[in-house]
Simulated assay, not measured.
Amino acid sequence: MAPKKEDPNSKIVAQNRRARFDFFLTETFEAGIALRGTEVKSLRDGKGNIQESYAEAKNGEVWLINAYIPEYQSKMPFGHEERRPRKLLLHKREITKMSDAMNKKGFTLVPIKLYFNERGIAKLELAIAEGKKKGDKREAVKARDWQRDKARILRDFG
């Protein structure tokens, strides 16, 4: 699978920045989301949070659990539940790949970012991830600090 270029027309609504620190991301997928009208309007306003959310594969379907999309502020009589499970739209082979990975010990499905693509459709970038241990996190911090210091040294003396 070739790496995708970032599209300048896509609008990122929510990002899970902590995911790359807490998990080893092995494979990413792009999924559509089954949303209600007020949820789409709320996301277009830039509101939404996927920090504490995760995805779960059950009965041949994948669900986004605990994603926060606030109610749209209008006089509409029908709203939506803010943290309801939302169905993710994926191909069957992607779903089987995800459920096989979930059956392995220590793997989970982590949402990376929620955005609108160039056609204006809400998409979720999802990754199969393995949890990092404390030592792995320390190593990541050391590597990041060293890269920052190295860049500073090269800039000042190079």
Rank of each mutant, 00 (worst) to 15 (best):
L43M: 14
K58F: 11
I50R: 03
K11Q: 15
K113Y: 03
F78T: 15
S42K: 08
Q51F: 15
R36V: 15
L25N: 08
E94Y: 04
P70R: 09
G37V: 00
G158E: 07
P77K: 01
N49R: 02
F157A: 09
L43A: 10
K97F: 07
P3R: 11
T108W: 01
K75M: 15
R148T: 11
E118L: 00
F157P: 06
F107E: 00
P77F: 01
N49T: 01
K58R: 15
T38R: 02
Q15N: 05
G106W: 03
K142R: 11
E71M: 08
A19I: 01
R83N: 07
N103I: 06
S53A: 08
M102G: 04
A67P: 12
K113D: 13
I50T: 00
E39K: 00
R155L: 12
T26M: 07
S42R: 05
A2F: 13
D136I: 05
A151F: 10
A31H: 06
F29V: 02
A140E: 13
E39Y: 00
E52R: 11
N49C: 04
F116M: 08
A55Q: 02
I95M: 02
G120S: 02
R86N: 07
Q147W: 04
A14N: 03
F24I: 12
V62A: 08
N16G: 03
S74L: 02
A34W: 07
M102F: 09
G120W: 05
A2C: 05
H80V: 05
A129V: 12
P111C: 08
N16D: 01
P3N: 10
R93N: 15
F29L: 04
G32H: 02
K41D: 13
K123N: 03
N66W: 09
A151D: 12
E125K: 11
D156S: 08
L124W: 10
R36H: 13
Q147N: 15
P111N: 06
W146H: 10
F116Q: 07
E71W: 05
P85A: 09
S74A: 07
K4G: 10
G37E: 00
S74P: 00
E56R: 12
A151P: 12
R138T: 14
K87I: 03
N16Y: 05
R20N: 11
R86G: 12
E39I: 01
V13N: 04
K137L: 14
K105M: 08
Y115Q: 02
G46I: 01
F107H: 03
K123M: 13
D145Q: 06
K150D: 13
T26Q: 13
I128H: 04
Y72P: 02
L126A: 03
F157R: 13
E71H: 06
G37D: 00
E81M: 09
R155M: 14
R148H: 09
R148M: 11
R138P: 06
G120V: 01
P85V: 11
L89S: 13
K41V: 14
Q15A: 08
R152D: 12
G32F: 00
